[in-house]
Design a protein around this nucleic acid. Structure first.
Lengths: 237, 237
DNA sequence: GAGGTCGGTTGACGTTAGTCAAGTACATGC
DNA sequence: GCATGTACTTGACTAACGTCAACCGACCTC
């Protein structure tokens, strides 16, 4: 067994699949490499494969007819993409592009079909994986609909320092242009919102975020969006 | 076979399932009725059932710790909810509430588990259904990230007049407060955005939208968000 | 080392959307 | 009848965010 199937085996998509089932499928896959900025598949292209990211970062985006790009996913090791389209033999509903040098395991959709049709366990496991993806998307929607830019950044940072408490320093995993796009804002707004977070004890130094108090940041991320001014007023007293 | 299983059989979740497979499962379900404003299940509650809407309208929402509500789904006849949580035996990640008098077919999660574990075809069909749900969520994300409020309304209206061309009158399916929440804005903003759409030949009269030209509206919905002023400037010449 | 690009920040300014408050229309209940 | 409540609209004001432009520093190529 190669190193790449080793990594792919641990991917969440196969979480509830016995190892030997998954191995059969993965052994049919092949390695794909993409340099920074390289397109992996286009939006609207007929789906031929699904992919499992082995290392590096990949972004999923939607291109509007007018040419604006909306980033709808930023993936890394263990994440899976293209399955939705591949499994139904449709066109990819998003484009995929490597944002750093990246390696992927590429699985032909025919192999995927065969496996899903003949293996309930695998099918269930993929179902689970979709449920998770769904939940993540709903979380995104909630963030966009009821939180300010600064709050979305706070949520993003909190996601990076999983379960930590008190003081914490996290490394921004990719560049700020992409972070901005992922959070649904412009780089300029991101920059300014970072500034606003300084009021919550967050300092950005190069590609690191130094968080004085995780608890305080959580409080800010969840507080009523229109409460920021009153919190400010409060602090003045 | 009752009328309710008749309707439920046609639900997209069972689209690719032979009728007799689905009937077995559906026969175990029971009817649930909910009055306007009634809660169907709470966010965070342990999942016990999945639901298929038979008639009426149901909204799915996420409640933030601070109390703001984000509507993440508005469902009607044939739509399915609670499956994600029910299938994994988790807690509901959203709340569900009837926005009009509504009837649902309620399926116990144990019956669902049994069916999914033992029926690849059903499992695949649910997989397909999740893929669709995923695509819809991605579409929502794209709208929120790269389109203005007025454009999202345009997209919403276009969804109501499926495939029509030229002039079209559509009925707003639920009240404007909910439309606003669904599109991620406040009722006041919705009201004003409707006004802006008058410039695109859309007139709102009570609960009806009269669209002079579907094509023109599509153009507006897709155009670069920052192009609205130049379009305006253009019209002035 | 000169020139170029790219990522990032900052300032000035305009647009969009949220807030607060008032007011209308249309239900429902007493 | 009148009161109450809810859906919706409008106006005035404010906050949030996008746009445009200038600018800096890092890194590249020639």
């Amino acid at each position: 067994m190669t190193l790449m199937t080793e990594i792919a085996l641990k991917a969440p998509v196969f979480r509830s699949v016995p190892e030997d089932h998954a191995k059969d499928l993965l052994s049919k896959g092949h390695m794909k490499e993409a340099g920074r900025g390289a397109s992996i598949h286009l939006q609207g292209e007929r789906a031929h494969s699904m992919f499992i990211v082995l290392d590096g970062w990949v972004k999923l985006y939607r291109m509007s007819p007018c040419g604006t790009e909306a980033v709808v996913g930023v993936l890394t090791k263990g994440d899976c993409f293209g399955e939705a389209a591949a499994i139904r033999g449709e066109v990819y509903s998003t484009g995929a592009e490597a944002v750093t040098q990246a390696h992927m395991l590429q699985l032909d959709c025919h192999d995927l079909w065969y496996a899903v049709e003949n293996d309930v366990v695998l099918c269930r496991s993929m179902l689970n994986s979709f449920v998770k993806g769904n939940t993540a998307l709903v979380h995104q929607l909630e963030q966009l609909k009821s939180h300010s830019g600064a709050q979305r950044i706070a949520d993003f940072l909190l996601g990076l320092c999983k379960d930590e408490v008190g003081e914490s320093t996290v490394v921004l995993p990719y560049d700020k242009v992409l972070i901005a796009a992922w959070l649904g804002m412009k780089p300029e707004s991101l920059s300014r919102s970072f500034r606003r977070l300084e009021g919550c004890g967050v300092k950005i130094v190069k590609d690191r975020a130094i968080i004085r108090s995780v608890e305080r940041l959580m409080e800010f991320a969840d507080e009523d969006a229109s409460a920021s001014w009153s919190a400010k007023a409060c602090r003045m007293n």
